[in-house]
Each structure stands twice: as structure tokens, then as C-alpha cells.
């Protein structure tokens, strides 16, 4: 069991090094001088050259790229993501403040989508080409096609403003979470429903499903015991990969619902050219992305005995 874990840690390090270099490099290449922009914003008037020079020297922006990157990287390795340009808090503190809200939203969205998608996908596949199947397919198509900011505003108009069932914005209570979670989960639910359906159809055609039927096993058990577990194997990969997109979708949904979180933090930081914050958020998202994929691999081992990794062969 130790070897595969070590192997994964090794690949994790390589991926993280690449991600950090890439984000740092991209920001370095972005047009616009952060020193000028930030000072202009703070003082309300164009800053003098001397002031810009001083800001650059203070934040190490006058050093060559390699030096900047390496000093940032050594700080990161020590666990220090730097200090925000526009606020007095350190990036670490900002991330810790904003992360829980986003994680809450992402998990709620995943939960909503899976709770919806798996049963609907299975029922669609079992009753292939029936009205249930056609309806769910159509709804899934709508779900995939709708941009989530549009669905968000639609829900705010309908549920929050007209019916007054939930608050329109903010965070803190379960009522605050409902609309953003539905907004964010719909797209994923649509994708997963179609995936579960396709995967189930394929598995229901498999010879071992006939073996189960020929044993005299009840149809409900044939579907849920023999077919579903096999059908979930490809679904797990996609859901894992989609987690990254849920995080990026959270950025938009948080803005729509005015929820404090990594998304709003990132958007504000980008507008303010607050690069340490941008890098911090991107790095954190990348870590989350990679870790989810590792979790997917582990889930695989649990679901599919054919995949080696700790299992005896």
C-alpha cells in the first residue's frame, strides 16, 4: 500500500511545480503594471515615478523573473503565500477565511447533482426509450445547455424575489446555500445523468448481467447489485474531473449570489491586480484538483478490483 502512495506523492510534486511556474509566469507576462495600478487606485491620482519605484522595491517587483519566482517558491514551501498588496492580511489568512464557504458550496452542488443524476440515469437506462427516459434526456439537455449565471439569476427572480422562499444573496444559513447549490449542481447533474444512462445501458448488455438473471436473481438486484456498481466506475472518473469545473463554476456562482468565498476573493484580486492573492487562490485550486484526482484513483481501487494498487494481485 505504501508504494502507490509514494508514487502519487511524487507525481503530485511534479504537477504542483508545473502549475506554480505556469501561473507565476502568466501573471508576469500580463500587461499592466501592478505597482502603478494599485497606487493609482489607492490614491485616486496618478502616482509619481519615485512612488512606483518604491512600491516595486518593497514587493520585490524589480527583480528578474527567476529571482522573483524562486523567492516566492521558497516562501510557499515554507508555508507562506505572501501578503496581499491591497489589504493588510496575509494570503494564508485570506484563503483560510474564504475557503470554507466555497468548499461548502462545491460539496453541496456535488451532492445535489449526484442525488439527482444517479437514480434518474439508472431509471432512464432501465426503461430505455420510454417517456421517462425521453423526458429525463430532454431535461438533461436543457441542464447542460443553460449557462449557470443565467440559471442563477432566473432562480433569484423566481424563488427568492417572487416567492420569497430564500434570501437573494449572502451566506451563513442553509437557506443561503440552496439556490447556489442548485445553480452550480444543475450542469453537473445533467452531464452525470447522461453518463450514468450510457454506462448503465452498456453494462446491462454485458454477459454477466445475463448470468445474474439466469441465476434467478431478482431484476431489481440485477440492476442495483450487478449492473450499477460496474456502471459507476467510469462515472467516478468524470465526477472527479468535474470537481475542478465545479470549483471554477463556483467563482461565477459566488459572484451572482454575492457569496463570500474563493470566487469573489479571486475576482476582486484580479481586478485589483493583487497578484499574491491570485496566485494563492490558483495554487489552492490546483492542489484541490490534483488531490481530487488522487481520491478518484483510490475510489477506483475500491470499486474495481481489476485495478491494482495496494490490492493483492
Amino acid at each position: 500500500m505504501l508504494r502507490p502512495v509514494l508514487e502519487r506523492l511524487g507525481s503530485l510534486t511534479i504537477v504542483m511545480a508545473g502549475v506554480s511556474l505556469l501561473t507565476y509566469g502568466l501573471i508576469f507576462l500580463t500587461p499592466g503594471d501592478p505597482a502603478y495600478t494599485i497606487l493609482h487606485e489607492q490614491r485616486g491620482s496618478p502616482p509619481s515615478d519615485a512612488e512606483v519605484e518604491a512600491f516595486r522595491a518593497e514587493h520585490g517587483l524589480d527583480e528578474p523573473f527567476a529571482v522573483q519566482y524562486l523567492s516566492w517558491l521558497t516562501d510557499v514551501l515554507r508555508g507562506d503565500l505572501g501578503t496581499a498588496y491591497t489589504r493588510s492580511e496575509s494570503v494564508n489568512v485570506l484563503l483560510v477565511q474564504h475557503l470554507p464557504n466555497t468548499v461548502e458550496l462545491a460539496l453541496a452542488a456535488m451532492a445535489v447533482s449526484l442525488a439527482l443524476a444517479v437514480p434518474v440515469g439508472v431509471v432512464s437506462a432501465v426503461h430505455r426509450d420510454s417517456w421517462i427516459d425521453r423526458t429525463s434526456q430532454l431535461v438533461a439537455l436543457l441542464g447542460v445547455s443553460m449557462p449557470n449565471f443565467w440559471l442563477g439569476y432566473l432562480l433569484i427572480l423566481l424563488v427568492a424575489l417572487s416567492l420569497g422562499l430564500t434570501p437573494t444573496s449572502g451566506s451563513g444559513t442553509l437557506a443561503h446555500l440552496v439556490l447556489p447549490a442548485i445553480t452550480l449542481g444543475t450542469g453537473l447533474a445533467a452531464i452525470v445523468t447522461r453518463l450514468v444512462r450510457t454506462s448503465m445501458l452498456e453494462v446491462l448488455d454485458a454477459a454477466y448481467v445475463d448470468t445474474a438473471r439466469s441465476k434467478g436473481v431478482r431484476e431489481r438486484l440485477v440492476v442495483y447489485k450487478h449492473a450499477l456498481r460496474n456502471a459507476l466506475i467510469p462515472v467516478v472518473t468524470i465526477v472527479g474531473l468535474q470537481f475542478g469545473f465545479v470549483l471554477s463554476g463556483a467563482v461565477i456562482v459566488e459572484v451572482v449570489f454575492q457569496r463570500p468565498g474563493l470566487g469573489t476573493l479571486l475576482v476582486d484580486a484580479v481586478f485589483a491586480r493583487d497578484y499574491p492573492v491570485v496566485q494563492g487562490v490558483v495554487l489552492l485550486t490546483a492542489v484541490a484538483f490534483v488531490l481530487t484526482n488522487q481520491l478518484v484513483d483510490l475510489a477506483y481501487v475500491a470499486l474495481d478490483p481489476r485495478i491494482e494498487g495496494g490490492e493483492r494481485t
Binding site: D210, R213, K215, G216, N230, D304
Partner: peptide
């Protein structure tokens, strides 16, 4: 099926549930 009529299919690669 459970008691009287048993069936064995052709391809043992695919007739047993892999999980």
C-alpha cells in the same frame, strides 16, 4: 432458473461479474 434450468455462456471473459 434458480433451481432447475442452469445456463453456461460462451465467453468466460465476460460472463462473470468483475467486481
Amino acid at each position: 432458473r434458480g433451481r432447475e434450468l442452469a445456463m453456461v455462456f460462451q465467453d468466460p471473459e465476460t460472463t462473470l461479474n468483475p467486481v
